[in-house]
Computed example of a mutant assay.
Amino acid sequence: MPMDRESRREKKQLDTQEEIKTAAWNYISQHGATSLSLRAVASSLGLSAPALYRYFPSKNHLVLALIHDAFLSLRDALDASLIPIPQASWDDQLRCLGHAYRDWAIAQSESFFLIFGDPVPGYLGPPDELLPVAGQSLRVLIEVIRKAAVAGALRLPLEPAPNQHLQISLKAWSDAIHKTDPDILYLAFIIATRVQGLMLAELGRQLPPFFPDGSGLFERELERIILDIRG
């Protein structure tokens, strides 16, 4: 059935937005996210800067769309890593997630740095609508940690207990996005920041010169994380 005029207009709008995002990723891969220029992106597509604003009203809107796609890419990579091993133990699944995270960060380094690296000048930070998609990339790790708790490997509640302010914050975050035990959410977030820090050091070339790459450090940190969960 042929599309009506409104449907064709919407499709053209979406197609052009995708072309702009692709051009923006190409620019980021060559020049880095911190130097992202709407004028340069528009020029690479043969558009004027005012024409680009019809599709993304500001640089902030474009960066937000790119970060949204980056989080979806990370989520998909983590989810796909566990599809072949649905019945594996929680620790084997955690190892698999860790390796998938590192592989994704290396293969999609522009996406990794856009999410976790230096902020893009002029970007105002994640609005509320970005929180759910960011949370999706943490969901599979939360499920693996919950599996560890069910298996008796993780003792809840965690010690030491959070202070009142942290307790309120964790509960609010859990109630709004993840609907899980706040201690499990806390642990998932801390694990994510530990592996994120190693990848920032490796991809940012901040490792001491004695390491050819970060694989050995990352592997050991994964095992340390598993031992920490077991207590």
Rank of each mutant, 00 (worst) to 15 (best):
L222D: 03
A105P: 00
D175S: 12
S73I: 05
L66C: 00
K179Q: 13
D79P: 12
A148P: 07
G32S: 13
P209V: 15
C96M: 14
E19S: 00
L97D: 08
H31I: 10
L74C: 07
E110L: 03
P160H: 09
A42W: 03
F189L: 03
I106M: 04
E6G: 14
I184F: 06
A172I: 01
L38G: 07
F116E: 01
S73F: 01
E143S: 11
N60W: 10
L36C: 02
Q93N: 10
L200C: 02
A100C: 08
P157D: 11
A100K: 06
K59R: 03
S35P: 15
Q87M: 09
F71G: 00
R95Y: 14
L38H: 05
Q196P: 07
Q30I: 14
S44G: 06
L130D: 02
A201G: 15
Q206N: 11
G197I: 00
Q108N: 07
R205F: 12
A88N: 03
A24F: 02
N60D: 05
I145Y: 05
L78H: 03
L82V: 13
L72Q: 13
V195L: 10
A33M: 00
R139Q: 12
S81P: 13
A134K: 04
A201C: 11
S109T: 14
E219P: 15
L222F: 05
A153N: 15
R155H: 13
N26F: 01
I191V: 03
K12F: 04
T180S: 08
A77D: 11
S37C: 12
L72G: 11
L170R: 09
R146I: 11
S7W: 07
A161S: 13
L222A: 09
R75E: 11
I142E: 05
A80F: 12
G46F: 08
G152V: 06
I28G: 02
I28C: 02
H61K: 09
Q136H: 06
I184H: 01
G46I: 05
F218G: 12
S7T: 08
I177Y: 09
M1Y: 08
Y27L: 08
P84M: 08
I225F: 04
W104C: 08
Q17P: 03
L97E: 09
Q164N: 10
P127H: 04
H99W: 14
S37Q: 10
V120K: 05
I145M: 03
K147T: 09
G125T: 01
L78I: 06
H68F: 02
V133R: 01
S215K: 11
G46C: 04
E202N: 06
L166F: 00
Y53T: 05
Y186N: 02
Y186F: 03
P86Y: 09
E143N: 12
D118W: 10
P121D: 13
T34L: 12
L52W: 10
R9P: 03
D118G: 14
P2A: 10
A105N: 01
V140P: 06
P127C: 02
R75T: 11
D91N: 11
I142G: 01
E202Q: 10
L131D: 07
S58V: 11
F112W: 03
P121V: 14
P208Q: 10
N60A: 02
L156E: 06
G117T: 02
H61V: 07
A153V: 15
A51W: 09
H68G: 01
W25A: 04
L94K: 08
P126K: 00
A176W: 07
Q30Y: 14
R220H: 14
L114N: 00
